[in-house]
Design a protein around this nucleic acid. Structure first.
Length: 948
RNA sequence: GCGCGGGUGGCGAAAUUGGUAGACGCGUUAGUCUUAGGAACUAAUAGAGCAAUCUGUGGAGGUUCAAGUCCUCUCCCGCGCACCA
């Protein structure tokens, strides 16, 4: 019997040995090898490594070791993202300095990380709280300040009452709560340190295309940045007689400038500066002021609720001129227009926008349709023109009894609808059209419906104006048998329409577009699609896409883009972070702290209990230092930086972590960057991953980096859930402690188990205690295989080994560690039964080495002096992969009826002959009844026979 | 509402990309052995049926000799965005 597999002793022994040998230190770049930069997100040193850290670090380590054994020089660094609130809060609780707490945790976590046995490049480590690190964080900030990437902005910020600090937009969750504390975010107006990430919005979107990232992550970033292409259009304001000479303009942003003729009012965000600026002109100021105050008080969640009813107030005394048609239109303020997006003002086109429509309904504002859905009509010559001298929008005609015309007419009271002509059906009812269709087209409110059994005709129309501005209308009739059916065909653009009447066509709008024109008035819908312009002066008949630029040009607007993304607010009113290296002169002007005074260290004479005021404001040390260096009356900035700043460049420092002269030299970056694979969690998609891409681009513009994108490839892992399938949490009592598991079954087992649960990308998996025992059993059998060594082994076992090698290689490269492990289990099950040679055993051990580094090193060491991890990964022998025989499935009429063992190269005749030797096949098929034979060598033989 | 992913045994999941559905592991059942353990080993394990066989990859259609895989419609679940003009 072999000796017991004592994982604890083996793992400890090799971890110490590896550390002693510095086995995984990368040292200098070895140009004889290809480099590979594998990055995992550096952890926050919370003081306890959880199973998620294992999943994040130990599973990628399989890949790292695999690549090392394939001759790559792999850098796999690890460091600590150690600034931030948890340390500060813990320190407050214990009444100690966060620095001590953090350093103790780092020391403890280094021990825990060592127990993983990962091939970390510890010689390249960093720590964001190290002054030698944050000196460079500060240097980059001052560079950004000098280049107008960092600025002191004013505006509305997200205030987290739980964290007592401002947070960035990305750090507010969809439900309006703080991603860290869960508190509801409040809006506050205060000056803020910002980074101009919006300036990079286009590059952040456009450069995504070239990245080898999962499409859903790229899409999430695109959506987060939220680029909208549209136009800015200026409206002239009419501020009344008193100030008629000081007319001002207001700029709106719209993605649909082609609907300008349909803009029947303007809406400004309540916060819009123009409102207060024109206080004197606004006749109902008290009402307006009241509305502004109420909307200020509404919290974010309330305001985001799209389902609630629209509110707003008209600005009495102010009107605007629609630059397209010079119509005078009213101006409103309403909180459905956001101050922070676009220009904070919109032109409202109720006929073509849902929100504007709702608002218009509520405030009784005119709704003007200017875009109609368009269908191509085929015309026939020689059809007579009916001229009624008026515009007729829709005709509904009974096939036998006559025609109904429905006409829209402008009048003092607004648009009116008339029934112009008509006929009756056999029962004397007015119009014959299917009830469903009438409902569909919005005419159901007319009392013109007879029975539901009729079939009718639908007509297109056109109208033109003659020299005397009299409208000429022409009607087009379509004979249809089944309206319902045809109407859907029209929608798909398939239907050819037979004209029975025709005239000189200058504009053609189909019935359905006009049905919709009325529908939006009569029902609760409006048309938000594209089509042809109508009631738009010289642009009538123009395609809406084409009309965008044409109309913008006419009114002197500008095509532009606007973004959902906001500038990154990085100032934090907390203690444990990088001090913002800014000082203010006696006039209050901001100056960067010169490089020679960096690191601008974090003072320790501070009561850092959060009060909402920055703790550094109370530091005498900081103030004295400032005055000493810069002079009396100078004051320091007292805010610290968002910790996402620290993690925006850590990967650059890794590759040149001891450089005292540069954040990371271009030489070292050229050697190691970009990151070939970045493994991480989904939660960083629109935070860290976006920030660091921006940071990289900002540095690129300053000549400080070599790459425009830091991460070539991104792999997002899932979550490890508790055994009950829920997210692990102390309150649910379903937390798995990795240290305890390691003690019980060993680090190799925990690692393989995590890799075995499913593909690494994407999914979440529950931790199954039974499952991990199964993996331990597997490793024990591997260890015990030494009892099955034999001088010779059956060829099939050798073949299996090489198949396994090929499979494992393929799977590791696809991050499907689960099937790689499964393949190795199959091999072990087989070899255990048949026995194997020592050489095969050693090959297998190498194959397993990235997965079970300790166990394999132990087995290897019995015969070798060098580490197994410095050996070469097995390569499958191609000739062994070609099978002598295969099992071929035999189907009869597509149903499996048996299988035969045959050469993969067998001919169809050979396969058939052997198939018909099978009893079960003869039962279902005979040579006489064969109609067709499908033979895919090595795959399938399908016999198609006459059915009885 | 818009945009991405997904639905396969009791569970985690496989399936050579159109070719024998459920590999591997867990769990379960029966048995063997023992120093009675968080054992190990042997066998079975999609469902129904004594069986031959039939049915089965969310549902309904379709294409094909052949569909988990392709097409059309539909239901459900997860994630991101959402009064963004």
């Amino acid at each position: 019997m072999h000796k017991k597999f004592d994982s604890t002793a083996i793992e400890k022994k090799w971890q110490q040995q590896w550390e002693k040998d510095g086995l995984y230190n990368v040292g200098k770049r070895d140009e004889s090898k290809e480099k590979e930069y594998v990055l995992v997100e550096w952890p926050y040193p919370s003081g306890n490594l959880h199973i998620g850290h294992w999943y994040a670090f130990a599973v990628p380590d399989i890949y790292v070791r695999y690549r090392r054994m394939n001759g790559k020089q792999v850098i796999y660094p690890m460091g600590f993202d150690a600034f931030g609130l948890p340390a500060e809060n813990a320190a407050i609780k214990r009444n100690i300095n966060p620095k001590n707490w953090t350093n103790e945790n780092i020391a403890f976590m280094k021990g825990q990380l060592a127990s993983m046995g990962n091939a970390f490049s510890w010689d390249k480590t960093t720590n964001s709280t190290d002054p030698e690190y944050y000196k460079w964080t500060q240097r980059m900030f001052t560079k950004f300040f000098e280049n107008d990437i960092a600025y002191r902005g004013k505006g509305i910020v997200n205030w987290c009452p739980g964290c007592n600090t401002v947070i960035a937009n990305e750090q507010v969750l969809a439900d309006g709560t703080c991603e860290r504390s869960g508190d509801i975010i409040e809006k506050k107006e205060m000056p803020q340190w910002m980074l101009r990430i919006t300036k990079y919005a286009d590059r952040l979107i456009d450069d995504l295309d070239a990245l080898d990232w999962p499409e859903h992550i790229k899409e999430a970033q695109r959506q987060w940045i939220g680029r909208s292409r549209g136009a800015e259009i200026d409206f002239t304001l009419n501020l009344g007689d008193a100030s008629s000479t000081v007319n001002r303009t207001i700029t709106v942003f719209t993605t649909r400038p082609e609907t300008l003729y349909g803009a029947t009012y303007l809406v400004l965000a309540p916060e819009h500066t123009l409102v207060t600026e024109n206080k004197g002109v606004i006749k109902n100021w008290s009402e307006v002021e009241e509305y502004i105050n109420v909307s200020k008080k509404k919290d974010e969640q309330d305001r985001l609720d799209a389902t609630k009813e629209k509110t707003g107030v008209k600005l009495e005394g102010i009107t605007a001129i629609n630059p397209a048609n010079n119509e005078e239109i009213p101006v409103y303020i309403a909180d459905y227009v956001l101050a922070g997006y676009g220009t904070g003002a919109i032109m409202a086109v109720p006929a073509h926008d849902e929100r504007d429509y709702e608002f218009a309904k509520k405030f009784n504002l005119p709704i003007k349709q200017v875009v109609a859905k368009h269908y191509e009509f085929e015309t026939k010559p020689g059809v007579e023109t009916i001229d009624r001298g008026e515009a007729v929008d829709l005709i509904i005609e009974h096939p036998t009894d006559g025609t109904f015309l429905i006409q829209r007419e402008k009048s003092e009271q607004g648009d009116q609808v008339h029934l112009v002509g008509g006929g009756t059906d056999g029962d004397g009812h007015h119009i014959a059209i299917k009830r469903e269709l009438l409902e569909e087209t919005g005419f159901s409110n007319y009392k013109i419906i007879s029975g539901p059994h009729f079939v009718s005709t639908v007509i297109g129309y056109r109208h033109t104006r003659d020299k005397n501005q009299k409208t000429k209308a022409s009607y087009y009739h379509i004979k249809l048998n089944d309206l319902k059916q045809v109407s859907s065909e029209i929608e798909e653009g398939k239907h050819t329409i037979e004209w029975v009447q025709e005239s000189d066509v200058t504009k053609l709008i189909n019935w359905r577009a006009h049905a919709e024109a009325w529908e939006h008035i009569r029902t609760e819908k409006q048309y938000t699609g594209t089509g042809k312009l109508i009631y738009s002066g010289e642009f009538d008949g123009m395609d809406s896409e084409e009309a965008k630029e044409a109309i913008v040009k006419k009114v002197g607007g500008r095509m532009t883009s606007t973004y959902r993304l906001r500038d990154w607010s990085i100032g934090r009113q907390r203690y444990w972070g990088v001090p913002i290296p800014i000082v203010y002169d006696p006039e209050g002007k901001a100056h960067p702290v010169p490089e020679k005074h960096l690191p601008w260290t974090l003072p320790e004479d501070v009561d850092f209990k959060p009060t909402g005021e920055a703790p550094l404001a109370k530091s005498k040390v900081l103030l004295e230092r400032t005055e000493e260096i810069f002079g009396k009356g100078w004051t320091p900035e007292v805010e610290t930086m968002d910790t996402f700043v620290d993690s925006s460049w850590y990967f650059l420092r890794y590759v040149d972590n001891k450089n005292p002269n540069s954040l990371s030299s271009l030489e070292e970056q050229k050697k190691w960057m970009p990151i070939d694979i970045y493994f991480g969690g989904a939660e960083h998609t629109t935070m860290h991953l976006l920030y660091s891409r921006f940071w990289q681009k900002a540095l690129l513009d300053l000549g400080l980096v070599t790459e425009s994108e830091p991460y070539k490839r991104r792999i997002n892992r899932g979550l490890i859930l508790g055994p009950d399938g829920n997210k692990m949490s102390k309150s649910k009592g379903n937390v798995i402690d990795p240290d305890a598991q390691v003690k019980l079954v060993g680090s190799d087992t925990v690692k393989i188990y995590l890799a075995f649960m499913g593909p690494y990308e994407g999914a979440n998996y529950p931790f199954d205690l039974g499952g991990i025992a199964g993996v331990r059993r597997f490793l024990e059998r591997v260890y015990g295989l030494s009892d099955h060594l034999a001088p010779n082994e059956p060829k099939e076992v050798t073949v299996q080994l090489h198949k396994t090698i090929a499979k494992v290689r393929e799977d590791i490269e696809a991050f499907k560690f689960n099937t790689a492990i499964s393949a190795m289990m199959i091999y072990v099950n087989m070899a255990e039964k048949t026995g194997l040679t020592k050489s095969s055993y050693q090959t297998f051990i190498k194959l397993l080495a990235p997965f079970a580094p300790h166990l394999t090193e132990e087995v290897w060491s019995l015969d070798a002096k060098d580490s197994i991890h410095e050996s070469t990964y097995p390569v499958a022998e191609a000739e062994l992969l070609v099978a002598d025989t295969v099992t071929l499935g035999i189907q009869v009429n597509g149903k499996l009826r048996g299988d035969i063992t045959i050469k993969p190269t067998a001919t169809e005749e050979e396969a058939l002959a052997q198939a018909f030797a099978e009893e079960n096949i003869i039962k279902y098929a005979s040579k006489d009844s064969l109609i067709k034979v499908i033979y895919v060598p090595g795959r399938i033989l399908n016999l198609v026979v006459k059915s009885e």
